[in-house]
Nucleic acid binder design. Structure first.
Lengths: 201, 201
DNA sequence: CAGTACGTTTAGTAGAAACTAAACATACTG
DNA sequence: CAGTATGTTTAGTTTCTACTAAACGTACTG
């Protein structure tokens, strides 16, 4: 804590709110397998009314420049922050993408998609391999079983893929559409609360 | 490789298929932040026509008993495998849950739910804190900005929560319903293929 | 052209997580 | 009751990842 008064000075209240929020975003990030600092940086940017410089972020988040630099670049690649260049200003400034559906889109596209395709193609290749080979008579039933299971998984992956692709299209439909869509058709239970009654942990 | 002939002996073809598949599931698991061995174990169980014992799994997956023991228990907690007890048989046997939607349900319930609630309540607490405090005049606008952003995030989390809860209810509706539901209402584009043209890797 | 302000890169480090090896617990079996 | 088969727990090791500290590159500034 040798730093001499960080950049912004909100009232004690707002400051603690910001700290809590940043810490919360850290936890979320960590939970999703992303670096803690990444979540913190996004949190700081998300709350800030105006774009922040790299050193601002160092002050807010408490990690070194290098870490902020790499994390902020990663966030930009995911479409979660935007880099802003100002004329007559050497520093770069960063701001958070406020539309969370865009964030989800970015993460899904960047992170899930690749591995998803790999998994799907692995299954398909296995399926092909089973179909192509001729098996000893006592193994034909095993081969058939493999085909069945692999086929089921392929089907599931396709469905999930469709689901993800569809969700990604919801970008401009916004929440209301989504909720209306789901709420009416799928849920037969009468209570207005879509969550099951599990309030506790 | 000092082991003396593992339990099963499929033809070289089926064996290699199985190996590939297991390796693929390992990758999937690793990608989702789960232990590699966990994915491998599930893969082995998923392909097997009948339940496997713990030592069978050791032979298939290539990790030690201890690792299989803990991982298989974890899988059971997630609802991804079932433990089967046979009369007059000391060993336990395990089989994979073949319905993948149940798997998704299990993972979502066990893993996402808790952290999800924490995040949401963090946001709510921050929101309350901002609302409760009285701020210096020059900070009221900042406070308002915090409220707006926090409110947006809260709304998003609620929506996402509803989405997840709804997906979890699809358990018995199966894929067709889901796809029909989505395909008709949401996607206006005419082509039958829900994926963008990315067939290659 | 020396000096400074920024951002990036690199080498090294610290912490976490999953695995191995082996001890342990428990229950059947002869 | 000794012996064996089975699953669990524990201590220690390995491996990976995100961070720090510091060097570096580059472009402005006086």
């Amino acid at each position: 804590m040798t730093e001499s008064e960080p950049v912004l000075t909100a009232s004690p209240d707002l400051e603690s709110v910001r700290r809590d929020f940043i810490e919360g975003m850290s936890r979320v990030a960590a939970f999703w397998g992303l670096p803690k600092a990444m979540g913190a940086i996004y949190g700081a940017l998300y709350l800030s009314p105006e774009p922040l410089s790299l050193d601002d972020l160092v002050a807010y988040v408490g990690v070194t420049k290098g870490a902020v630099s790499t994390n902020v670049r990663h966030l930009a690649r995911l479409g979660m922050v935007r880099e802003e260049v100002r004329l007559g200003e050497r520093r770069d400034f960063y701001s958070a993408e406020g539309d969370f559906w865009k964030v989800v889109k970015g993460v899904l596209r960047e992170r899930e998609k690749a591995e998803f395709d790999r998994a799907l193609s692995t299954v398909r290749q296995c399926l092909d391999a089973v179909g192509a080979a001729d098996h000893a008579p006592e193994e034909t039933s095993l081969a058939l079983h493999y085909q069945e299971r692999l086929g089921q998984m392929q089907g599931f992956f396709s469905s999930l893929d469709t689901l993800v692709a569809t969700v990604m299209r919801l970008d401009d439909l916004r929440h209301a559409s989504l909720l209306g869509l789901f709420g009416k058709r799928v849920v037969p239970a009468g209570d207005g609360n879509p969550r099951e009654g599990s309030e506790e942990r």
